[in-house]
Nucleic acid binder design. Sequence first.
DNA 1: TTGAAAGCGCTAACAT
DNA 2: ATGTTAGCGCTTTCAA
Lengths: 329, 329
Amino acid sequence: MVEKKTIKLDDVAELAGVSKTTVSRVLNNRGYLSDKTIKKVHDAMDKLNYRPNVIARQLFKQKTNLVALVFPTVDNPFFAELEAELEKRFDQLGYRVLMGNSQNNPAKEQDYLKLLLNHQVDGLIVGSHNQGISEYQKTTRPIVSIERFVGKQIPVVSSDNYQGGLLAVQRLLNDGCKHIIHTNYPINLVSPNELRQQAYEDLMNKHHRKPITYSVSFDVSDEEKERVFRKMFREHPEVDGIFADNDTNASLIIRVGKEFNRHVPDDLKVVGYDGANITRTLSPELTTIQQPIPEMATKAVELLLQLIEGKTNVKSVTLPVKMINSTTA
Amino acid sequence: MVEKKTIKLDDVAELAGVSKTTVSRVLNNRGYLSDKTIKKVHDAMDKLNYRPNVIARQLFKQKTNLVALVFPTVDNPFFAELEAELEKRFDQLGYRVLMGNSQNNPAKEQDYLKLLLNHQVDGLIVGSHNQGISEYQKTTRPIVSIERFVGKQIPVVSSDNYQGGLLAVQRLLNDGCKHIIHTNYPINLVSPNELRQQAYEDLMNKHHRKPITYSVSFDVSDEEKERVFRKMFREHPEVDGIFADNDTNASLIIRVGKEFNRHVPDDLKVVGYDGANITRTLSPELTTIQQPIPEMATKAVELLLQLIEGKTNVKSVTLPVKMINSTTA
DNA sequence: TTGAAAGCGCTAACAT
DNA sequence: ATGTTAGCGCTTTCAA
């Protein structure tokens, strides 16, 4: 194979008989250029099959037009849709997107934070479930978080979790459920998602019922989760309504319920949470609270861009949720 | 707020009372250094909170340690799992991963190819469904494709589609199905996936049955797809077995079947394809052919790294599939 | 064991 | 309308 030397501005300049600067100007459409020069330069570029070295440009500009998405894993309906929506919007704005699956591993999350601090990326969207990463508190670089409290100065985009909780529980109450159980992840995760539980408890208390919540970690296997749900059915055979904190769990609960001869919705009603694309395609029967994923993506991108552009005083936002009526409740 | 000047090698060198070279050596653990010097330099780095500029290093090395994943969308169980597995492996090897959702848009795919040619990424994993992008034929830069023929010199990692097709159809035949229909996407997509259809046709012909295939584009809405399936049930009310080309379609077919009062598996059997994580969690009842997604990821990463390291003669591989027995067939 | 100097490929003052 | 030059921050020969 022929050893190919990389073609640079200089080579184009030489062939076109102009200076590097002129070539750079043609490349960036900047400054005054005569048509003749422009043509000469373009011809030379074509002839040499010139390709600008973006890294060099990045070094000069101190900007990479790269952002990283730090979520537990993209292999989950909610995050998959969210990341796809984020990528779509960033792409339109000329940003490339790094996939940062943190696996809920603080070390990996810190790696991505380092990328930001090292100026390898211009910004970060984080939605991981780790906590206590102190660097978040210190940095003033652009970070937007989704459904998670990260640090005082970091804006959060979330959906209206309290309202979502109310909608879900009210639906079960309206369905006539007497014994409603909630599943959530361990509450120490410092997420606005706790508000769902708050709403559940408030509404239960208001109706003089005892709130019962089962904790299920996000990052364990389906089998592990099913084990918790079996325990739940054994400990509370009277349960007739479940408000699950996400659709995957709702789906697992329905399956485990079958083992206990519970038929949904006749003798068990289930309301899920998230309402992502994939879930609705694969489990259309699920009644659920839908988070406005596309709008959340739009907002997060908007806020991050403001931060990247140096704007201060960027505020958190909360977006409304929607009830999706189907047949499990 | 205080205007912070970025700390560079020079600053560290000055504070430590050594040269840039020495600091660089400490940073990279290269060459002979006295312990005293090393300590001095580290102290200075700590004091200044020095962070190396990776872009500058990339410019020098002409290597970004970045790869891009070009697939139609990550918002799909198969691609989500595949991309997550790829990211996990690349991360362990020190590569970062760009998410390239091509939306089956050739222009977007070309953009990512450009990233590669511009040396902004070191390699590409492609699994999009576009075709006729001539640049693929010309480049000698590192590209590995998954389940898709891209160009003569580009290695393909695929699962054994022919075997998968045989397994699926044989299962339906064993179940006693007399009128089996196959769904696939338009055949011009130059994918090894055509082999599934080939297997279907071969087996049908062998059993003296007429093969019937319905084409469903990958990148249309669920509603659009359901429309095709309704047409299928109307045109072929005798159908009693379906070999769907992916699990999402299988799921949609089962739903549409209900509209036609078809009860699965009693009077309609369905075998899907892919067997991704999410699908199995959300639609565990689906009998399907499972692609070895983690192994495909492992192999693709391995091949791409060989290419990045300059190895030639990197060969395509085919990996075995597996039948997942459940209740829809 | 350490340093000086050149250069990775590009951009932007500043000059003409 | 175009060119000269300095420099973005780092690594690496080469020399000492």
